[in-house]
């Protein structure tokens, strides 16, 4: 059982991540005020992905989990991407 009682994440790490998340929220709000054309949505998604990456890795302890967890998460996100992506063979060419 010892392998499972590893790593207590210190308060400080959480606080730093939280500040990072607030900054990124500010950035995404500011960027949205400028017209970047089609890039707006991609920048917004990029920042959201970064933020969710922080939450998953640190708040949700994914960083400290074993490979099975990481591979499974990857598989789930890949399948979601496929589900959304393949639709565009229909939507973009209709």
């Amino acid at each position: 059982m010892s392998e499972e009682h590893t790593h207590i994440v210190p308060y400080k790490t959480f606080a730093i991540v939280w500040i990072g998340l607030l900054i990124l929220t500010g950035v995404t709000v500011v960027v949205a005020q400028y017209n970047l054309g089609a890039m707006n949505i991609w920048v917004a998604l990029g920042i959201a992905t970064l933020k969710s990456g922080l939450v998953v890795a640190v708040f949700m302890h994914m960083k400290y989990e074993n490979r099975l967890f990481k591979l499974s998460l990857f598989a789930a996100l890949a399948i979601l991407a496929i589900f959304i992506g393949l639709n565009f063979f229909d939507v973009l060419y209709r």
């Binding site: 399948i79 393949l86 063979f89 229909d90 939507v91 973009l92 060419y93 209709r94």
Partner: peptide
């Protein structure tokens, strides 16, 4: 099996490109 769903929809009016790919 997760990549092929639209083969139920060839006559639904979706794009020809999608028909080809699926």
């Amino acid at each position: 099996g997760s990549l092929v769903w639209a083969h139920h929809m060839y006559t639904s009016g979706m794009s020809d490109m999608a028909v080809l790919v699926f």
